[in-house]
Write a protein that binds this DNA or RNA. Structure first.
Lengths: 117, 117
DNA sequence: TTGACATATTGATTGACATCAATATAATGA
DNA sequence: TCATTATATTGATGTCAATCAATATGTCAA
């Protein structure tokens, strides 16, 4: 059980995770999507003209590919929300990879999501 | 006491942190510097021709600016090691910012380093 | 002081990617 | 069916950053 989870956290692509969160606009979008479901246009409006719709779609796609958001389709709209749990697991993977001394006290081994999205 | 630490974790620039770790070569260097002190040339050799010395110096500078490595000068050599604690704190800052629901169980509030490097 | 070594800096090149305008696709209502 | 709305895709452009060769800076030994 624990072994499986340790294996899973090892498989996490810390480079992909880092690259996806290493963008200002993307971090702003993540902040918007924390704890709430928003449509693409909701996000565009929340960013108040900083970027326009295709750019937001582009970033949401990146976040989706990195499993950092959940998507729910509803008619012609797509609602997104942040996958806080997976984000936490990725941070745990970073610590487990680069700060093994702090791994034990930090990584929540029993909250790792399964692969079937 | 806890308040001060919470304040500190809030001040952490999660965008800078993400950008610095969002590079393959830099992650390899970080892996090399985990738990050991290495000189610049030691790192160059460990990377076995992947990049050359100026590139390694460049990356080490970035890591130093982001407080992710400690430096010790010794004669004409400079030894580096990964700052595992600060890396852990940065991960905690990410979680506290983007996954507040998981913040409590993950962030090690009492292991935040002081500003005087 | 001079030569060898260790690291940092500079300038040029290149590739990756964020952004936008324009357009395509898809769903809904009249 | 047609117009409208919501989102995605495409192609072009510009910017940033990784990399390297060459060189500078700083340290040690003889």
């Amino acid at each position: 059980m624990i072994d499986i989870n340790i294996m899973k956290i090892m498989e996490i692509d810390t480079l992909l995770f880092a690259k996806v969160i290493a963008d200002d606009t993307r971090q702003e979008i993540m902040k918007c999507l924390c704890c709430v479901w928003l449509s693409v246009n909701d996000v565009v409006e929340k960013l108040e003209g900083k970027v326009n719709q295709p750019t937001v779609s582009h970033h949401l796609k990146k976040l989706e590919e990195a499993r950092l958001v959940f998507v729910r389709e509803e008619g012609r709209q797509r609602f997104y929300t942040l996958n806080e749990e997976y984000l936490t697991v990725c941070c745990g993977a970073l610590i487990s990879k680069f700060a093994p001394s702090y791994s034990a006290q930090v990584v929540p081994l029993d909250s790792i999501p399964t692969s079937d999205a």
